[in-house]
């Protein structure tokens, strides 16, 4: 098991290094930052001065090594837009995004998992059909649209919640609700289908034939086996929440990583974009690592080897 985790850790670091490299290459290919940042009528001297200032006049391999070394130190350079340290610019947005995504994640589990379990155990009942109808609805409405609907209903029409900003806890309610509803729907659907699969297994029939009470069958036999595919799915959900922040945060003007990423891309703020991509990748890799470790803990086939 230690070897398993060590192997996953090494793989995670390799993925990170690969991403750092890819980001470097792709962004160098996407155009001359000096021309993007300065106005079109800037003279060659101004361009040269800009390139010299940001180290863009050196050879590409040199720039790469310099860049990797800096990244390892947590130094992503300085924002083109306002000259502030990229690390500061990005890190002040991290808690904002984490507050929304983690609350939404917990909420989608708290709602989605029990809903899926009830639907699976009471399969084909009115309760099941109701839960699944709600889940299909929640899942098929795009979450940014749901966000706009929420703003209209709660901020414009009922005037009970603020539509944008992040100054109070109330401001977090709508983004969290939007995110959580969409993902709770996905979690509920997957929980239901996974549990139905497990409940159809011969070992469940065997437990029934042995007279094991229904509740015990669900809790002791079915759920631990359903947990393994669920962990994988929850990993995807967590990743989707982070990625989705680029869609949801701008809707609510929530000053997190998502809206920061959109802004930086629009203004061509290369250092910020780079740092954001590396950070998002680091989050994803961390989520995957957690999934792998949980998977090993839950699955005796991996645990015992």
């Amino acid at each position: 098991m230690t070897a398993f985790i060590l192997a996953r850790l090494i793989r995670a670091l390799a993925v990170l290094l690969f991403t750092v490299t890819l980001v470097f290459v792709v962004l160098r290919l996407s155009g001359d930052p000096a021309q993007q940042m300065l106005s079109d009528n800037a003279g060659p001297e101004a361009l040269a001065a800009f390139n010299a200032k940001w180290g863009l006049d050196r050879s590409i391999p040199e720039q790469y090594l310099y860049y990797v070394a800096n990244v390892l130190h947590g130094d992503f350079g300085v924002s083109f837009a306002d000259g502030r340290d990229v690390f500061t610019v990005v890190s002040e947005r991290i808690p904002k995004t984490l507050v929304v995504t983690i609350s939404a994640f917990i909420l989608s589990i708290v709602i989605g998992v029990p809903a899926g379990i009830i639907a699976a155990v009471r399969r084909e009942s009115a309760l099941d059909k109701g839960v699944m109808a709600a889940a299909v609805l929640g899942y098929s409405v795009p979450n940014f649209l749901l966000g706009l609907v929420f703003i209209f209903v709660f901020a414009v029409w009922l005037r009970v919640l603020p539509s944008s900003g992040s100054s109070t806890w109330n401001h977090a309610i709508l983004p969290v609700a939007t995110f959580a509803l969409f993902n709770a729907a996905a979690v509920a659907r997957f929980m239901r289908s996974t549990l139905i699969d497990v409940l159809a297994q011969p070992y469940i029939a065997a437990a029934r034939a042995d007279g094991i009470p229904h509740l015990e069958i669900v809790l002791r036999h079915a759920l631990p086996n359903a947990a393994i595919p669920m962990v994988t799915t929850l990993g995807f959900v967590a990743g989707g929440l982070l990625g989705g922040s680029a869609l949801i945060e701008p809707v609510f003007s929530w000053p997190g990583l998502g809206s920061g990423f959109v802004n930086a891309t629009n203004t061509g703020d290369l250092p910020v974009v780079q740092a954001m991509i590396v950070l998002f990748t680091a989050f994803m890799v961390a989520i995957n690592l957690i999934v792998d470790v949980l998977y090993a803990v839950l699955n005796p086939k991996i645990r015992k080897h």
Partner: peptide
């Protein structure tokens, strides 16, 4: 009472056993 007095042995012994429980736990559960 009926379930205690009866039993079922199924076809595929791998899927008839819970992969998450030791065989001792499964045999002794009843």
């Amino acid at each position: 009472a009926f379930r205690i007095r009866t039993a079922l042995v199924q076809q595929n012994p791998l899927s008839a056993l819970n992969p998450q429980m030791t065989i001792g736990q499964q045999i002794g559960e009843g």
